[in-house]
């Protein structure tokens, strides 16, 4: 990038460099993605069978399947959503629809959400361990892990839900107000149905985040790789299974890759399902 006597030439060279750098970046990122995915598929695909999905693990996970982890993961996700959904939807409604009457509360909540969104997942794990596991006496349990995850996904859930609500044209709110409709009717009969695609997007992002999480679960839902008998039982999430197999079990790599592939497939299916649901909703209304 030497300074040429003719600036025009330098600028053309810089333009060309810029184009080259962009192309290189795009190719590199694309290749990186393929490399990651390729490696996991190559190592894991051979391991996957119906038995793998339906059997309990044996020999510390080197053999057998992942059925208990799938069940635990779904249970943890269920607990997480059961708490995070009402809390998230309520907060998003407050932030998006009560901007005038509850301005100050809204500002406070928004500020704390900004902070919450940046809190590292391991710190959520610390908090969950101290609060849910010890103070509330839930121990290492699915309940404790799900509650911790609920705290973690809240900011994301609220932000996307709020965006979905804000995407509803303000003319609907005006029209409803001018008819003297109560806020309850306006929200439940008009705004929320119109916001459904945004709500689905938020739900899917939140679920994806919860499914992917590991660090927050290590000290809350625990490691036990049996089928959980109740929500108070410890249960090993799929992500923790991947971690344990690859870090602590020599010879567990192949099964770890297979579990990772299952997790990625779950996430992908979730995304596709959400896309299809949003599409269908858009068509029907």
């Amino acid at each position: 990038m030497s300074i040429s006597q003719r600036p025009g030439l330098t600028v053309t060279a810089l333009d060309r460099l810029l184009g080259f750098a962009m192309a290189a970046t795009v190719i590199a990122v694309g290749l990186g993605f393929c490399w990651i995915l390729g490696a996991i598929v190559a190592q894991g695909l051979g391991q996957i069978s119906l038995a793998f999905l339906l059997a309990e693990p044996s020999n510390a996970g080197r053999e057998g399947g992942i059925a208990p982890m799938l069940v635990s993961t779904l249970l943890i996700l269920g607990v997480c959503l059961a708490i995070a959904l009402p809390l998230g939807l309520g907060t998003a409604l407050l932030l998006a629809e009560f901007t005038i009457t509850d301005q100050r509360l809204g500002r406070l909540v928004r500020r704390s959400l900004d902070f919450l969104a940046g809190v590292p997942s391991i710190v959520f794990g610390l908090f969950g361990n101290a609060f849910f596991s010890q103070v509330l006496g839930l121990g290492f349990s699915i309940l404790s892990g799900g509650l911790t995850l609920a705290c973690m996904v809240l900011p994301l859930l609220i932000r996307t839900t709020e965006e979905g609500l804000r995407a509803v044209p303000p003319s609907y709110r005006q029209g409803a107000a001018a008819l003297g409709l109560s806020q309850t009717t306006t929200l439940f009969k008009i705004i929320l149905p119109a916001a459904v695609p945004g709500l689905i997007a938020g739900l899917v992002l939140g679920m994806g985040r919860a499914l992917a999480e590991t660090a927050a679960l290590i000290f809350t839902s625990g490691y036990v790789d049996r089928f959980p008998r109740s929500l108070m039982d410890s249960g090993r999430a799929l992500s923790i299974h991947i971690f344990d197999l690859s870090m602590n079990i020599p010879g567990g790599d192949a099964r770890a890759a297979a579990s990772a592939l299952v997790l990625l497939t779950l996430l992908l299916l979730l995304n596709l399902l959400a896309g299809a649901l949003a599409q269908r909703w858009a068509n029907s209304s």
Partner: peptide, 17 residues
């Protein structure tokens, strides 16, 4: 998609590749 890949999967890939 890259943003949605779980960190444990990144870690696993890093470890084995």
């Amino acid at each position: 998609l890259l943003a949605g890949i779980p960190s444990v999967v990144y870690g696993f890939w890093g470890l084995v590749v």
